[in-house]
Nucleic acid binder design. Structure first.
Lengths: 208, 208
DNA sequence: GAGATGACTACACGCTTGTGTAGGCTACAC
DNA sequence: GTGTAGCCTACACAAGCGTGTAGTCATCTC
């Protein structure tokens, strides 16, 4: 996370280890014993500092959100320009935090990440000359798509033949995303036709 | 699943209950005791029929894949036309199966769903006059996006204010998807610029 | 009728989980 | 020295999990 470890307090090492393991396995499957072991402390200390596993998760949420905001701000820099070198340096950390936040969200209860994504999506949509019918639904689906990429990291990596988080793998993923969002796979006519077909479908009875 | 229950064999009821619970909670969190209870049998019978929890999951995988293929075939019908009424009738079942398959895939090990999606994606790409650089990466990201929508069902439903699987909610989701894929949010110039910027980023050292 | 087979249940085992408790160690105040 | 507070460990506990075992019951064959 930061340097290697060592100079960090035990509390910080636990937090970092938790973020790593939560990101790798998901919140449920990651056990406090494994987290403690990775941090090099006893599981009791984890409890001492964070009270419970859920307390630890909340602390991780808070830290990850704050850190992401900090990274974002630092990336844009004082002059608002994006420095490639800075981006490359913070990239691994950002990927890890992103993976963690996505995993944390999938566990249920809190949806801080999705909500904040919706919020920044609204301002983006507001500034763009781009007006989907049903903007809320549009944003929700769009965000779900972007998050899906991180959730499918293992599957995508297998197809790519390299880790999606590696520099080259990540570039291929970004390139694909850009192509998807700039080269429409449906022509406007096809899109129009699909929307018409969708409207013509009269949903009847519905139950499982 | 089928009718209500009752007339189904215990084995089928267990399988259906498992698909429901796996889809709702995920494979890990769903316990064989709860599955047995929902099916109205003892947990021992589940073991008797399927050997183990993993055996049950495999049986569900096989069944769900076969059922989906059957639905797809039935939907297109003998004359290759899509009947709206048929679609509406099978819609709930298809949604449930889709949710299950996605959940099953997220558990790891097997990636039947992703692989088969890749395969049909390849033929689609082959027939389309549409040539992304790095087709495999393109397809992988595209599929991850589509799957992400199902994984984010709860979050999307909350934003929509209604269940994404309900008739109206599902229509809003589909409409958003179509708009995303037919109205590019990046102009060709913006896309070109983004790709150029991406290439200019020289990834340096990389480690966590 | 006797025996076998398969559907089905009840119950116990071993393991892992998160959590609770008691206590040791170091550093600092007085 | 003597507390005293905070970091930290070791160990026990109850609960829930998947799994294993023993046995009941109905149905069918001969």
């Amino acid at each position: 996370m930061s340097s290697q470890n060592g100079d960090l307090t035990a509390r910080a090492r636990i937090r970092d280890a938790a973020i790593e393991l939560f990101a790798e396995r998901g919140v449920g499957p990651a056990t406090i014993r494994d987290i403690a072991e990775r941090a090099g402390v006893s599981s009791g200390l984890l409890r001492h500092h964070f009270g419970s596993k859920d307390g630890l998760r909340e602390a991780c949420d808070e830290y990850a959100m704050a850190k992401m905001a900090e990274l974002r701000e630092r990336l844009l820099g004082p002059n608002g320009m994006m420095e490639p070198a800075v981006l490359a340096a913070m990239h691994p950390t950002a990927m890890l935090l992103q993976s963690y936040l996505v995993r944390s969200m999938m566990d249920g209860t809190s949806s801080v990440l999705f909500d904040s994504a919706m919020e920044s999506g609204r301002t983006w949509l507001h500034n763009a000359d781009f007006h989907p019918s049903d903007p809320e639904g549009y944003l929700a689906v769009l965000i779900a798509m972007k998050i899906g990429i991180f959730l499918m990291r293992d599957q995508i990596s297998e197809v790519l033949g390299e880790d999606m988080m590696s520099p080259t793998g990540h570039r291929r993923m970004l390139r694909a995303s850009i192509e998807i969002f700039s080269l429409p796979m449906l022509t406007p006519e096809q899109g129009e036709r699909a929307l018409k077909a969708l409207d013509s479908l009269i949903p009847t009875e519905e139950q499982s």
